[in-house]
Design a protein around this nucleic acid. Structure first.
Length: 225
DNA sequence: GTCCAGGGCCTAC
DNA sequence: GTAGGCCATGGA
């Protein structure tokens, strides 16, 4: 059995179903960065509530947020979960950026590798969050891996273990997909859209756009998973 | 009531 | 370098 796990083929199936996803709504780079941190292990609808709160309080800028008390920040971002951790980390990240770079644009003007190292040095930003910020806020092409992408790739090609490391799967994509900002942005978005609707632990693969290429999706098997 | 979400950090081995 | 515990709200 040859598994059709070429990312470009997968993307073509997803794109056909979901259309181009104008993803990661955010009016500013700062808002996108904050969203990337708040959405860790959290649904986007909950993040939206927190972002709305920040907007209402006019705190959605590096300068404003660094002048905010931790307790009042906690209160505003509460709906996004882990709110004590996130408030503390968000504050410390913003203060560090301001101290070390002055503005977000200065930070984002670093080249991709330096920017990634800088982001990873902050407590509260791991690989996925760093790469999301680079891809959607700084707008530099880097492939974002998340739990949905791992799970989907494993199901499409069992040779790709569920325990594959972040870097390994990222290399897998970057070696095979043309290095293009909008393509990278949309491809990650498509995997998330897939993950939210199909390919979860329980819901079904009936109707999944990847049925033709997924090991669980062939017509003879077509079952819940 | 139970499960889980667009992770990451810390600690122990 | 990795498995397990922890962080927490809100929707299905």
């Amino acid at each position: 059995m040859v598994y059709k796990s070429d990312p470009n083929a997968i993307y073509s199936h997803l794109r056909k179903r979901f259309g181009f996803l104008d993803w990661w709504p955010g009016e500013t780079k700062f808002e996108i960065m904050v969203g990337a941190i708040l959405t860790q292990q959290t649904t986007w609808t909950n993040v939206e509530k927190a972002i709305s709160g920040l907007k209402a309080a006019k705190l959605l800028s590096l300068d404003k947020i660094t002048k905010t008390e931790r307790r009042s920040l906690e209160k505003i971002i509460r709906p996004s979960g882990y709110y004590r951790q996130k408030a503390q980390r968000l504050l410390s990240i913003c203060k560090s950026i301001k101290r070390e770079y002055g503005t977000l644009d200065r930070l984002f003007s670093l080249d991709k590798t330096e920017l990634r190292d800088a982001l990873l040095s902050y407590k509260g930003i791991g690989k996925e969050t760093a790469d999301s910020i680079i891809l959607y806020a700084a707008e530099k092409p880097i492939f974002v891996i998340d739990a949905y992408t791992k799970r989907a790739m494993h199901r499409i090609n069992p040779k790709i273990g569920e325990d594959i490391s972040y870097g390994e799967l990222q290399d897998y994509f970057e070696k095979r997909v043309k290095r293009d900002l909008v393509l990278y942005q949309d491809m990650h978005a498509q995997f998330v859209e897939l993950g939210k609707n199909y390919c979860r632990t329980r819901p079904l693969c009936v109707g999944c756009p990847l049925n033709k290429i997924c090991q669980y999706g062939s017509a003879s098997i077509r079952r819940k998973h």
